[in-house]
Design a protein around this nucleic acid. Structure first.
Lengths: 264, 264
DNA sequence: TCAAAAGTGTTATCTGTACACCCATGT
DNA sequence: ACATGGGTGTACAGATAACACTTTTGA
């Protein structure tokens, strides 16, 4: 099937339900993962255009803002029980003035088939609320939406060009991540069930952007009493094998409720 | 002039400009002050009804969300250069289902003069973004808006009944205040220019909800290097007169940028 | 036997906390 | 004189940070 026809079909079906959605409000998700000692964010590449965007969506008239975010997350990753949190609302009156917003639509050959009503709706001013999610990359299978051809993880150190203010949204999400570090379930959300102490340390180093002293890190975390030690993991490397650990969930969540008082 | 006629006049003039405002979005301000060793919030009491609300407003189509908050703050307090910060967006789909929202309108004898268009607009679902401000109570002169008869400070320990989810909005603002304590200009915003060490300590005690050791507090704050010591203040009490202090503004703002690393 | 990373030990320094002490002030 | 709150001193417990030492592993 011609992907352009397919896209047009999707737009038309959304257009038919336009009355079910709030005009002028949207949500965008900064879905963060951790892989190869790097923080990564899940992005979509639009059809017919090639610019990248954050996964986002519109809000149904009967739907809570938080539920809209959960819905988008579920649609893109297949996950329903992950950590999601609202972090900021972007309310500039000129967010939509960037011409890139409508580019993919103008590339459609059959654009004239779309109603002026819909074009007005979609190019209107939008106030968007940012949500961020922390997920274990290995557990999810990214799926592009109707408007996109690719949905994949991008390293935060090498972001592609993004539409509108999506770069700013990511920056703000990272600020939030850093200042709220002690109250967020970083380790338990971003790492696989079992991990080594080095994995955990490298994760914190990636977030904080600075090296942490190995031996002190180990002692400090063990003393928190949230780690369960498992069997050693033979890595094949020419050195002592590290233990594997997992988190004691109840203790973990109890701890971050009052702030893990970790690194400041 | 009959206050009810006056109110109706205001509503009609707003109704005439309805097209200039975003439908479905609003801002609410949690304006915090400190007086008599208590944190206080600025509230409005509606005409014809008597329930209390947070000062809030609507957003012009060409206006940044932040600017709408600044505008409301300016209108209620007369202040333009105060600390304001967005803290959360409330997106429940049933926020407006509380009957209190329209009560004051229904109390109007001449309500039938209002257009159905306006009534639909105002009773629609609204997504509201909360801003909080920190101000020196002594510097401001609260002014009620067209819909209100009273605008005054209320102690956080004894809040009157509030419309809709405004209680929840205040609670969330206080959460934000506590978790962001180290990054907010608490002292410099809430206290008068000159203050005693006891004033500053009592302020922190009010926010943290627990007593702080007098002598250690003093040493800790002096060591931060953000305080300027002035002449002693003869209080008339039968004890040693305390020094007055003021903040070194540049040093203060430099410090909170990285977090004052204060009490956790 | 060697290099590399893991795990544990040691020590100096800083910070938090509690409380003791003297000082200034008005009754 | 004395009660009251302000300002400073001291001493101990615990946390932090830097680095040394030993152990395990595969080449």
């Amino acid at each position: 099937m011609d992907p352009e026809i397919d896209l047009l079909h999707h737009i038309k079906s959304f257009e038919a339900q336009l009355e079910d959605y709030l005009p002028g409000n949207s949500i965008d998700c900064v879905i963060l993962g951790y892989e190869s000692q790097q923080l990564k964010v899940l992005l979509l590449k639009w059809k017919n255009d090639g610019v990248w965007t954050l996964p986002g969506g519109f809000i149904k008239k009967t739907e809570h803002l938080d539920d809209a975010a959960q819905r988008v997350l579920q649609e893109r990753t297949g996950l329903s029980s992950v950590f999601v949190k609202q972090f900021y609302t972007f309310g500039s009156s000129v967010r939509n003035k960037n011409p890139q917003i409508s580019k993919p639509l103008y590339h459609l050959k059959k654009m004239e088939e779309l109603s002026p009503n819909f074009l007005k709706w979609i190019t209107n001013r939008f106030i968007t609320t940012g949500y961020f999610a922390l997920v274990d990359i290995k557990r999810i299978h990214p799926r592009p939406d109707a408007f996109s051809e690719v949905c994949e993880w991008k390293s935060l150190n090498a972001l592609p060009p993004l539409i509108l203010d999506h770069k700013e949204i990511i920056t703000k999400a990272l600020d939030h991540l850093k200042t709220q570090l002690n109250y967020l379930p970083i380790g338990i959300s971003l790492l696989p069930k079992k991990f080594t102490m080095q994995d955990l340390r490298k994760l914190y180093e990636a977030i904080l952007g600075k090296p942490l002293e190995r031996s002190n890190f180990q002692r400090k975390l063990l003393k928190l009493g949230i780690l369960i030690r498992h069997e050693k993991q033979m890595t094949g490397a020419a050195n002592k094998a590290p233990y594997l650990y997992s988190f004691s969930e109840e203790k973990y969540y109890e701890l971050i409720k009052n702030g893990i008082g970790f690194y400041s």
